[in-house]
Design a protein around this nucleic acid. Sequence first.
DNA 1: ATAACATTGTTATTTTTGTAACAAAAAGAA
DNA 2: TTCTTTTTGTTACAAAAATAACAATGTTAT
Lengths: 210, 210
Amino acid sequence: MNSVKNLPEKTIERLSQYRRVLLDCLRQGKYNIYSHELASLLHINPVQVRRDIMLIGHNGTLRKGYDVKRLSDMIGTIIDSKEGQKVAVVGVGNLGRAIMTYFQGKRTKLVIAAAFDTDPAKVNRVIAGIRCYAASEMEEVIRKEGITIGVITVPPDKAAESAEKLVMAGIRGILNYTPVALNVEPHAYLEEYDMVTSLEKVAFFVKNRS
Amino acid sequence: MNSVKNLPEKTIERLSQYRRVLLDCLRQGKYNIYSHELASLLHINPVQVRRDIMLIGHNGTLRKGYDVKRLSDMIGTIIDSKEGQKVAVVGVGNLGRAIMTYFQGKRTKLVIAAAFDTDPAKVNRVIAGIRCYAASEMEEVIRKEGITIGVITVPPDKAAESAEKLVMAGIRGILNYTPVALNVEPHAYLEEYDMVTSLEKVAFFVKNRS
DNA sequence: ATAACATTGTTATTTTTGTAACAAAAAGAA
DNA sequence: TTCTTTTTGTTACAAAAATAACAATGTTAT
């Protein structure tokens, strides 16, 4: 079977990036775009762009490139859920707030619906447009709101506990920003990102450049 | 040639993660670790762990695993620079502060030495232990301090300008957290990370799970 | 002492990802 | 019209990454 479910992981990442660029284009009144333009905006190869677009079953127009609106809609049908998905941010520290602020009114299909923290100064307040609940209410709120994705931005020592609570609440996907490897399989899809690793990687390549 | 410079990119990322786990082990008084333990802590395959460790020319002891201290030191010789490297954070918003706080006193070989912002309320103050300078002083401070790496955490519309300034100041590596693809080649090594893409990826896999 | 086991180190194989090559066809030039 | 150029769509190839297979060998059990 060659359906959308089998798209390569890297292609999914790039689709998200293509759409970001495409939405910028629309804002600027640009209605067509060539594969090589998309490619150079993202520092990748034009062939890869065409290949990705082929894989999702879209097609462009010879010598006119891709219709920006149509392509971005098409990407939407691939990566968005029809009814949208709700996201919870667990941990309203600097990083949590960064994400909440960043998403404010950005996507309609991926909405941050709740934040959780243990700090009484934050609980029951609205931060960056998002209601902050007590961590103890997590299961209840997640179920009631139908939240499917959790973003963990708590301090490292609270990470495992937060993940466990999310899983208990029936969460389906977790994006973990703490440097603690979580164990949530097979209940939830897990994506981990560690800023230190990224920075150390940059440092390594800086050091080893001729 | 099969030197350290030719290590696969993914291996570099994993080395950073191995070290993180190894340092945790040391703190907990665990002095030996098996490849399968390291692997399960990072959700990867034990063979990959052994292979990575082989590639850096380290070796363990049969049936005793790897010496935690020796291995973590060895990883240090690969990914750290002997004299260390200094990092600047450009943009002291929520995300910038998250990174500054996070690094406070963590690594000795990778030190955040300065932050930059345009907000007068932040300039010339010390935030999370780091001196915040005016953006206009960027070139001067970076050269004077010998800063080699820049982390960009400004709002999207300031991203290109910030990158340009960093390059002008002779920066060698950039970690870009804004959703704007920068063009800094061939002056600096560039690593980009977009939180929206990560979240959309999680959303996609949540949606497409059986 | 011998057998069974556990674990590393390494080579071989498979899978995934990226790139090159090129046919097809529309647009413009001669 | 016919030729050249440009750009897509697709297949073929190459590179990178991950996994499997297995030899080597020390350890424990019998």
